[in-house]
Amino acid sequence: MSLKKYFPIFVLPTLAAFLIAFVIPFLLGVFLSFTEFTTILDAQWTGISNYIKAFSNDDFLNALWFTVKFTVVSVISINIIAFALANLLTKGLKGTNIFRTIFFMPNLIGGIVLGYIWQLIINGVLKFFGVTITYDPAYGFWGLVILLNWQLIGYMMVIYIAGLQNIPSDLQEAAKVDGANRWQTLKNVTLPLVMPSVTICTFLTLTNSFKLFDQNLALTAGAPSQQTAMLALDIYNTFYSKVGWEGVGQAKAVIFFLIVAVISFTQLILTRKREVEH
């Protein structure tokens, strides 16, 4: 009973931190999306006009479509490649640890730096054709896909490795004894058992690619003509390069939050269903 009395005291520091760093800025952000403001301290209520402007803005819808395409492609490619690598590197090959380390390393480099590095590489290759990455939005698109793959595969691989190592070897042996070939073992034994890893990996890749910003800014900055600008970059541009449009940027950010929340919850529920206990 006495413990309950102290409950508010123990929870206070965390609660305060959560309020200050998360809840208050979030509510303030939602509030600002209904106002016109230059800095957050002088806001004037304007109702939903910001949301109307946001949706009647072509750039925003283009960015949304571009982001969706990008997310679908990268989530699939990152997870397949990461899983394949994890599978290889749990087979007990020579030098496994070195390979794991090397594959993981790109993840330790910041997004802006990676963006510039890949811009140099891609422009270096395209130089032979006399163009640069801004020539065609498709170049920017695939450049971003390669970049994000390069960055995230190592991380996802580590999660998959952990999942694979958790599978009891007797299950696989039993499958072998029962005459299952490799493909059947993978599909019917391994995959269902690593479903928790799949859940977490798809969640991470999905949110990461949807919210991509630094890499986008450094690699293409939206060129040509904002055709490779993703949602986060479009919000940033709206916020900073139009006088009086800060509120619209904020409204876009709120919409962005809702989309990310809905998508990731749906994904979590869907993949959770397929997880099995052993």
Partner: peptide, 20 residues
């Protein structure tokens, strides 16, 4: 009018220069 105007101006010039 705004930075955004200049941005769309230069975006268009870029597309013109690279021939798209």
């Amino acid at each position: 009018p705004s930075q955004e105007f200049k941005n769309s101006f230069s975006d268009a010039i870029l597309e013109y220069i690279q021939g798209t």
